[in-house]
């Protein structure tokens, strides 16, 4: 074993030691409640419409529509310097972004200019037909759903690389009528930030909780649903022309 690989191994052991923890005594929510009680953070009561599922999308869209009128740029900055997720609306489009660290400066113009477009060079991919095969060739610890709508079968798993690192793993499920459902797993080591611009008139946006994490469900006019969320180690996308309940159940079952 070379000196550098030895150092790497030992650094990995140190990381392993760091990551290996017993379960906390209290749940995350119990801990939060304790912190709230100790700090006196004022609870912000949720508006009642949040409980009315059917009105969520309408309310959020309405909020987007008027939000930019009330939200000053400095408020966005002050709030978002450690924010993972934020939404900005201008005119007929909404930008949904998740960031790590400092956010980009708020742009007046949401649509990208030529200078904002970056071309990714030489992206390689590798396609296999089973998770076992995929796991053999990627360094990412792959997760898969326990639940899948009955008629869907795994068609293929595609591993995309940036240089030698796995950028994302895309699993395609398909039935005999070629109806599809896609799951994308993107490792955190490749960066978790993303930004997406959607047309408010054609897209409903809903905020959900998946495996304890905040998630965004986009419902397009053509019936295609896209659910995004972020876990500690990965960014996830589940999408397809299935019902919200089915998409959510698939997402919740990923282990």
């Amino acid at each position: 074993m070379t000196h550098s690989s030895k150092d790497q191994t030992e650094e990995n052991w140190l990381r392993e030691y760091y990551d290996n923890v017993e379960e906390p005594i209290k749940t995350k929510e119990e801990t939060w409640s304790h912190i709230v009680s100790q700090t006196g953070i004022k609870k912000q009561s949720r508006p009642s419409w949040i409980k009315q599922k059917g009105l969520i999308a309408v309310a959020i869209l309405a909020l987007f529509a008027v939000g930019s009128l009330f939200m000053k740029e400095d408020q966005i900055q002050a709030f978002s310097w450690f924010t993972k997720y934020f939404v900005t609306t201008e005119g007929e489009v909404t930008q949904i972004s998740e960031i790590q660290g400092d956010p980009p400066a708020v742009k007046k113009q949401l649509l990208p200019t030529e200078a904002d477009i970056h071309v990714r060079n030489s992206t390689k991919s590798h396609e296999v037909s089973t998770f076992a095969e995929a796991q053999e060739i990627t360094e990412v610890d792959l997760s898969r759903p326990d639940y899948m709508p009955e008629d869907l079968q795994l068609e293929r798993v595609t591993i995309y690389y940036d240089q030698d690192k796995t950028r994302k793993v895309q699993s395609l499920y398909q039935n005999e009528q070629e109806r599809q459902l896609v799951i994308i797993q993107k490792p955190a080591s490749q960066g978790l930030g993303y930004s997406k611009i959607v047309d408010n008139q054609d897209t409903e946006i809903e905020t959900l909780t998946i495996q304890g994490e905040k998630a965004t469900l986009l419902t397009y006019k053509d019936g295609w649903l896209q659910l995004r969320w972020k876990s500690e180690l990965n960014q996830w996308v589940v999408e397809g022309s299935y019902s919200e309940e089915q998409i959510v159940e698939v997402a919740q079952s990923i282990r």
């Binding site: 995350k28 801990t31 939060w32 912190i35 709230v36 700090t39 953070i41 004022k42 609870k43 912000q44 709030f79 450690f82 924010t83 993972k84 994490e213 905040k214 500690e232």
Partner: peptide
């Protein structure tokens, strides 16, 4: 920070 801001910090760094 507001509750929302601090909750985000908590979510990000709890683990």
């Amino acid at each position: 920070p507001t509750e929302a801001e601090f909750r985000l910090l908590y979510e990000m760094f709890y683990s």
